[in-house]
Design a protein around this nucleic acid. Structure first.
Length: 607
DNA sequence: GCCGTTTTCGGCCCGACTGTTTTCAGTCG
């Protein structure tokens, strides 16, 4: 219990320490995130101080591991032998983590941070400004913060420093301004339409033979740093294609422009990178630009072990001249003794070992989804009637749709009280009967999980419904322990079929609850209910790592759009990507069940 | 600092672009 409190206790005072506070996201809730920030800062400081680059890389890796670790390290406990079992964490860092879990402090971290001015790390947020230049600015010009940099950039005060020509300074001015206004990574739901727009524009060119988006967008990550676009074309056409790209009307700024590589910022502040490559290298390049970086490094190391070399142009034998594979991703993986790995799995989470053994999961596809089990109508805050929803669902090729409007506590969303819900139920049954030849309409609710874990309707009403999605909407800042108790209580209610968006987070906007997911998953398993991946790109809740935990525990997932209107059904793609990132097959997801089986599964959760 | 189907010591991915350089360092992905 003490350990669980460590994160919040150690975060709290840090916010009061002047200067230091800026490095902490005030919403940072978990021990893992706090520790990840510590290791990241140690890496940053070491870079500026020109420390050992392999040590820096080790800290960077630990940062990533901690950020993605599904389990709270506080729950693992301060035992060095257990902590050092985590991939990437050796004995010395296990000791640092244990020290933090016990005392709420990390001596090495604190000491390193005293070696630079506390605000110096702000400068890392400015693109084009790296550790070498930051160190020089600090030592040669006394710059220790963004504000001081801005001041010195106003005049010509930095032009006497080595390497600081007028153009460089002008770029720094722009980057600094941008870093002060930009919001960082954007939601996948924002990036995807823009990426598709660029891809379509480029595909219209006759000289473009293939065009795909790559990067974290292709891997289906919930947030995207920039959009990577890859074009296959003959070398002679590359320059013209790059020229076309940087002159598209949504481009507001050209960040870099070469023959084969260009980079722009769009009017809505997205960075888009274009790479033009020979068609014969398209597969190797697509692999390279899809990443992840960690996956690529493992692949290149694998190539080296096989006396070969892998880069974006292909896989070469050790004389670096004999091309072994390059045209398609499948070829390159095969040449390295691997089965093709889906982009959504390329995160260095064991996918290469699975591929080697031929044990990669058969990931589910969008077309495997047969049912939408969470959608709203005008009865609460939706935009369409029961019939309108059902028709739209049928047009999307679905066989089953559940009408799940909000319960009474969601008064701002026009939630239904018991009386209205009972009338609504009659109406749903009526429309269901009228449309039974088109689609199966189920009667349900998205019932609020109140802050104490009670549900917003009595079981006498809930038991009349086919689908009960129980979701938290309010009290989303309660502490992890309360949140866990709350959700466990809801899961134990015998009427619940699906736990909806379990954390209530909004990507990039609010943290939501941080319940003990291990306990939630175990309880869902015991009850036989499903955990939702809410596909809306604002939510994506469960997130990928938790969905993976659920699958590993044998818990069924539900992938629902939580649709309030026609556009929302298209968000299903993001739920699919998240499920794929968790390694889900169609057997893991109740929305993929054939109708007859789904109609049997739903009541089975009540027994 | 971490890791081990050639290693407990000796490795640790690779190339493009920019801006300032006369051959390269810094940054990025």
């Amino acid at each position: 219990m003490m350990l669980h409190e460590v994160a919040s206790r150690s975060c709290e005072p840090s916010r009061r320490v002047s200067g230091l506070c800026i490095f902490y996201n005030p919403r940072m809730a978990t021990t893992n995130q706090t520790l990840a920030a510590f290791f990241s800062q140690m890496a940053d400081v070491l870079e500026i101080l020109e420390g050992d680059r392999f040590r820096i890389n080790a800290f960077r890796k630990i940062t990533r591991v901690l950020e993605e670790l599904p389990e709270d390290v506080a729950a693992i406990g301060p035992e060095v032998s257990k902590l050092s079992k985590i991939e990437g964490i050796g004995k010395s860092s296990a000791e640092r983590i244990a020290e933090f879990l016990i005392t709420g402090k990390m001596k090495d971290h604190d000491e390193l941070l005293t070696k630079i001015p506390p605000t110096l790390l702000e400068l890392r947020e400015i693109s084009g400004l790296g550790p070498k230049t930051i160190a020089m600015f600090w030592k040669e010009a006394g710059i220790t913060s963004k504000a001081e940099l801005a001041e010195k950039l106003k005049g010509d005060q930095l032009s006497n420093l080595p390497g600081m020509g007028e153009k460089k300074l002008e770029n720094l001015r722009k980057s600094l301004t941008f870093s002060q206004t930009a919001g960082g990574r954007v939601r996948i739901g924002q990036a995807m339409p823009m990426a598709k727009w660029f891809v379509n524009k480029l595909r219209d060119l006759k000289t473009v033979k293939q065009c795909e988006f790559a990067g974290s967008l292709r891997r289906g990550k919930e947030t995207i740093g920039d959009i990577d676009i890859l074009v296959a074309a003959d070398a002679k056409d590359a320059a013209a294609i790059s020229e076309f790209f940087i002159k598209l009307d949504v481009v507001s700024q050209v960040l870099a422009h070469g023959e084969t590589k260009s980079s722009v910022r769009t009017t809505d502040n997205l960075q888009v990178d274009l790479r033009v490559i020979e068609p014969s290298s398209f597969g190797a390049a697509l692999m390279y630009f899809t990443g992840s970086k960690e996956h690529n490094i493992l692949m290149r190391e694998r190539a080296i072990k096989q006396h070969a070399r892998l880069n974006e142009y292909g896989l070469y034998k050790d004389d670096a001249k004999t091309l072994v594979a390059a045209a398609t991703e499948e070829e390159v993986y095969k040449a390295l003794g691997l089965a093709w790995i889906a982009p959504t799995l390329r995160e260095d989470r064991g996918e290469i070992a699975l591929s080697e053994k031929g044990k990669l999961p058969a990931l589910l596809k969008l077309s495997d989804i047969k049912a939408e089990l969470h959608a709203h109508t005008t009865a609460s805050d939706g935009m369409w009637s029961i019939r309108g929803l059902a028709e739209a669902a049928a047009e999307h090729g679905l066989e089953v749709v559940a009408v799940t409007d909000h319960s009474r506590s969601q008064f701002q969303a026009n939630g239904l009280d018991e009386k209205r819900m009972e009338k609504h139920l009659v109406e749903i049954r009526k429309v269901a009967d009228e449309m039974k030849k088109t689609i199966t309409i189920l009667a349900g609710t998205e019932v609020d999980i109140l802050s104490d874990g009670k549900l917003d309707y009595p079981n006498s009403l809930l038991s009349q419904l086919d689908v009960v999605v129980a979701s938290p909407h309010a009290a989303l800042t309660q502490d992890p322990e309360k949140a866990t108790t709350r959700l466990l209580k809801a899961i134990e209610n015998p009427c619940v079929t699906i736990l909806g968006h379990p954390t209530g987070r909004f990507v990039n906007r609010r943290e939501g609850l941080s319940p003990d997911m291990k306990k939630i998953i175990a309880a869902a398993k015991a009850r036989g209910i499903a955990l939702e991946i809410n596909a809306n790109s604002w939510r994506l809740d469960l997130r990928d790592i938790h969905a993976r935990m659920a699958i590993e525990a044998g818990v069924k997932l539900a992938i629902n759009t939580d649709a309030h209107g026609p556009a929302d059904l298209n968000e299903l793609q993001y739920g699919i990507l998240t499920a794929q990132r968790a390694g889900a097959t169609k057997d893991d997801v109740i929305n993929c069940l054939p109708k007859a089986e789904l109609l049997k599964w739903l009541p089975s959760t009540r027994s």
